[in-house]
């Protein structure tokens, strides 16, 4: 009899503990949610940009999620890019050196990007052609809507590029 009493008491205690754990879990969930980026931050997740505003041979820098995105409209004298190209003659790449994260500078006379930190070089397609960088400049997720590019969303063109492994 004594055993039964103890087990009943224990059962209730465990049930109480389990129910309390549900409560604590819910509170933890609410706490977890409070750390999510605020709406104004989330609003920066996608950026739209008008590609036609770039003149041939010109580079524009778009700020996307706090990072620079280089939009280059290539001229025929620059490297040919096939798969890495956006809308034919645009190069759209994340302006962050794949070596150690510095921001490369465009050198108009050589038509390359040169990284000031360790001398890495990329051609007009963003491909690494010299120095320590292990891979080309990344292509950010994008979606095309006519002449407008939406950075931060994956459109069919981006997915195609990704499948071929050209985005990284």
């Amino acid at each position: 009899m004594a055993d039964e009493k103890v087990s009943r008491r224990d059962f209730l205690l465990y049930a109480m503990g389990a129910w309390a754990a549900v409560g604590v879990g819910s509170v933890l969930y609410a706490m977890y949610k409070t750390w999510e980026p605020l709406p104004e931050v989330k609003a920066q997740a996608t950026v739209t940009f008008d590609l036609s505003s770039v003149e041939p041979g010109q580079i524009k820098v778009v700020s996307w999620r706090g990072k620079p995105v280089f939009v280059l409209r290539r001229t025929p004298d620059m490297a040919k890019c096939d798969g890495r190209s956006v809308k034919g003659d645009y190069t759209v790449v994340l302006g962050i050196c794949t070596h150690l994260g510095c921001i490369p500078n465009w050198e108009p006379d050589k038509k390359i990007w040169h990284c000031p930190c360790h001398g890495g070089e990329y051609d007009a397609c963003g491909k690494n052609i010299f120095g320590p960088p292990p891979r080309p400049l990344d292509v950010p997720p994008f979606k095309l809507e006519g002449n407008t590019i939406v950075l931060g969303e994956e459109g069919p063109e981006y997915k195609q590029m990704k499948e071929k492994g050209l985005t990284v």
């Binding site: 949610k33 409070t34 605020l38 709406p39």
Partner: peptide, 13 residues
């Protein structure tokens, strides 16, 4: 604004 409107469950806290 931030706590009462923007932060998820901020109003609850």
């Amino acid at each position: 604004k931030t706590i009462m409107m923007d932060v998820e469950y901020g109003w609850l806290f």
